[in-house]
Amino acid sequence: MSATSHGGLLALVREHGGLSRQQMLDVTGMSRGTLVARLDALARLGYIYEAEALAPTGGRPARRVRFDDRGRVVLAVDLGQTHARVAVTDLAGRELRGSASDVQIADPGVLAAALDSGAALLAGGRGERLVGVGIGVPAAVDPASGTVVHPTTIPGWAPGAVRDAVRERWTVPLVVENDARAGAVGESRGPDETLVHVKLSMGIGCGIVVGGEVLRGAAGLAGDIGHVRVGPATGPLCRCGRRGCLAAYASGRALLERLGGSLGDLVAAQFDPTVAAALTEAADVLGTALATTVTTVNPHRLVLGGTLGPLPLVVERVRRQIHETVTERAWPVVEAGTSGATVTGLARLVVAAAYAPEAVDAAVAAAPRPP
């Protein structure tokens, strides 16, 4: 990335929280005329603005050039197998307005209903500018195209269903991501941390963040631990068609097949001896399976999210299995996830995509020239 391109200049301004023109000239070494022209283009497109005056040095006081995040918002849609969370956030991922509903992800109307909710939430704001849309789905996603691959949980969805539905409504940057990976981004505390995030709800998903970057893998399957075989080939049947997968033993769906009810019922009855025993067994299987991931990645933290992951019994049993299976030097902090991590992660991913230097350069190049 060149610091003298339009996108490079914006990245420089964002990194420093604002700079004067002279400071930018000192850092980049570019000519004043080129700098002024590029800053004018960024200002016309709403990327920057002139903020507070700096201390006078004689003559006309200089002003700090800042990144224009005023009124900028992201639409984040977290689609789980049995829930949907739709939110309008600021660029830091803080939710401004939101709605939640129970869904069945295989229902072909789920996506349109969620986008309708998003449109209504956006209409409820004043003076806002949508910079991008993030959609989290409980399936593997191709990192290059944003299409759904290996849709075990959403078999009725066409690969490009999410992308095409959003494009019909908004012409802004779009990020489509696996929900567990988006949750990992939302849980991440910065580029110095290695994090493993496991979502335990109806299914089991996993996201890994290293150095501030989420791992996606060659085919978008990094962290797809739910379909690792942990039992014999004669074990319980998984939705993927194989037997003995981790999800067939330890997912919320596997628990409900044994106990009945809903995930909410499991949470409400977590201290019932029968339910607690089933949760303990599932968490032990999950913790043992995660030992390989922990040893391979060596994370600072292992965060358990979703509906069932944060339950104290689950966190403690997973921690115990990790401690019994992994060498002490590799023990991570094992803790419950935070509510809304997937929405936060989607917002962060959208902001990273919308304001990437190459995206800014492309937007400037495509904009009409001033008369």
Rank of each mutant, 00 (worst) to 15 (best):
G71S: 09
V209C: 09
A144K: 07
E187M: 01
L12Q: 05
L121H: 09
G345V: 06
A161P: 00
L263R: 04
V314G: 09
E15L: 03
G80E: 01
L122H: 07
V315G: 05
C240I: 09
S188I: 01
V214N: 10
C240E: 12
I208T: 09
P312H: 04
G223A: 13
A158Q: 13
V88L: 14
L75N: 05
G109S: 06
G33S: 12
L246A: 08
A106G: 15
T147M: 05
R348K: 12
L237E: 14
L304M: 02
Y47V: 04
L111F: 09
V196M: 11
A144V: 13
P312I: 07
T28A: 11
H150C: 04
V176H: 01
C238F: 01
A362E: 10
S5F: 00
M24W: 02
N298K: 04
G261Q: 10
D26I: 10
A353D: 06
V172D: 07
G33F: 03
V110H: 10
V214M: 06
C206D: 04
W331M: 05
R242V: 11
R319S: 14
S2V: 01
L259W: 03
Q104V: 10
P151L: 08
L111D: 04
N178C: 11
V294H: 06
G146Y: 06
H197F: 15
F271A: 15
R21S: 14
V185Y: 02
G183W: 01
L263H: 06
L302E: 03
P236D: 07
D265N: 05
A3Q: 14
Y47T: 04
R14W: 12
L39D: 00
A92D: 15
V214A: 15
A330P: 03
I225A: 07
H6I: 00
E128C: 12
M202Y: 14
T296I: 14
D192T: 12
G98Q: 15
G306V: 07
V103S: 08
E328W: 14
C238D: 11
G205W: 07
P155A: 09
G252N: 11
L195T: 12
R44C: 00
G93E: 13
G136T: 09
D40Q: 10
A139S: 10
G136D: 07
T28D: 05
V351S: 03
R70G: 06
V315R: 14
R181S: 10
V230L: 08
V88F: 02
I154C: 02
M24E: 04
A62G: 07
D142M: 01
R216Q: 13
A120L: 11
R21I: 07
G17E: 08
V334Q: 03
A139T: 05
D284T: 12
A37H: 03
S117D: 13
D107F: 02
A180C: 02
I105C: 15
F67Y: 13
Q81R: 15
V172K: 07
G18W: 03
G261V: 08
G309H: 15
E281L: 12
E168W: 05
D272M: 05
R369F: 01
P61T: 02
D224Y: 01
V333D: 13
